[in-house]
Amino acid sequence: MMNFELFDQSEPPDTFCQILASGAVILRHFALHQAEQILSEVSRVSEQMPFRHMITPGGYEMSVAMTNCGRFGWVTDRSGYRYSELDPLSGKAWISMPPICYQLAVEAASQAGFNDFQPDACLINRYDIGAKMSLHQDKDEPDLNHPIVSMSFGLPAKFQFGGLSRSDKTQNVMLTHGDVVVWGGESRLAYHGILPIRKGYHPATGEHRINLTFRQIK
C-alpha cells in the first residue's frame, strides 16, 4: 500500500501578492474560491478533448498530460511547437474557453499590472505524481507584450523561476491550490519549470496537479 501525504485547506487563507521579479508575481490563493467550478469545467473540457502526452520535436513523450480550450491550442509533435485552432486528435475546433476561466485570468493579469490581457488560448496540464516540466521559455506566441497567467490546483508543485538565460540562477517556490502566477514585461521570457510532483493526495484533484496557463495569441 502506498503512503500519500494529504493536502487540504479547511480554512481558506487570505489572498496576497508575492513578487518574484520585475513584472512577475504570485497571487497567493487568488483562484481558491473559484477552484471547484474551474475544475468542473476542466473535467467537461477533457471529456470532449482528452488529456494526452504530446511528443516533442526531439521525439520525447512529455510526462505532463495536456489538452486545451479557447480559440487556439498549443500542440507539439515531430514538426515542432505551435498553436493550432484544431485539436490534432479529433480534427475539431477546441472547446470554447469557460467564461469563469477567462474572467479570472483577466482579473489576475490586471492585479499584476497588465490591463489589456485578452486570452484566447488556455493550456490545461495534468501532472501525475513524478511528472515535471523542464526549464523553458514561453516564446511561441506572436506578440510577447502580453503576459502569461498560470493557475495551480490540487497537489503542490515546486515552481522554478529564473532569468533570461537558462544558466541563470532560479528561485524555487512552492505553488499550492488556488495560487496564480503572472509574468510579463521584463520577465516575459524568463525561464521557468516545475520540479517532479511529490507523492500526495489532494481532496480536489486526487493524485494530480492541474495547471491552467493562459496566453493571448491574436
Rank of each mutant, 00 (worst) to 15 (best):
L6P: 08
F7R: 04
F7C: 03
D8I: 01
D8V: 04
Q9V: 10
Q9G: 08
Q9N: 12
S10P: 09
T15M: 11
F16M: 05
I19K: 15
L20K: 10
V25D: 05
F30G: 02
F30H: 05
A31G: 08
H33G: 04
Q34K: 06
E36R: 15
E36I: 03
E36A: 10
I38Q: 11
L39F: 12
V42I: 06
S43M: 01
R44K: 03
E47G: 03
Q48G: 01
P50Y: 00
F51K: 04
R52D: 13
M54R: 08
G58H: 04
Y60W: 09
G70H: 03
R71D: 07
W74C: 10
R78N: 11
S84P: 08
L86C: 08
L86W: 10
G91Q: 08
S96F: 05
S96I: 00
P99I: 00
P99A: 02
I100M: 09
I100V: 10
Y102H: 11
Q103N: 13
Q103R: 12
A105P: 15
V106T: 07
E107P: 15
A109P: 14
A109G: 13
Q111K: 14
Q111S: 15
F117C: 05
P119R: 00
P119Y: 00
D120Q: 08
D120H: 11
A121I: 01
I124S: 06
R126A: 05
Y127F: 09
D128G: 14
D128Y: 13
I129V: 12
G130V: 02
A131F: 14
M133D: 06
D138F: 10
D140T: 03
D143L: 12
L144W: 07
H146M: 12
H146R: 14
H146G: 10
P147V: 02
I148C: 13
P156Y: 01
P156I: 00
A157R: 15
F159V: 02
L164P: 13
L164H: 14
S165L: 14
S165F: 09
S165T: 08
D168E: 11
K169G: 11
Q171R: 13
M174Y: 10
M174A: 07
T176W: 00
W183G: 09
G184V: 07
Y191S: 09
G193Q: 06
I197V: 10
I197F: 10
Y201A: 03
H202P: 12
T205F: 01
H208S: 07
H208M: 01
R209A: 00
R209K: 02
R209S: 02
R209I: 00
I210C: 15
I210H: 15
N211Y: 03
N211E: 02
L212G: 09
F214N: 03
I217G: 04
K218E: 14
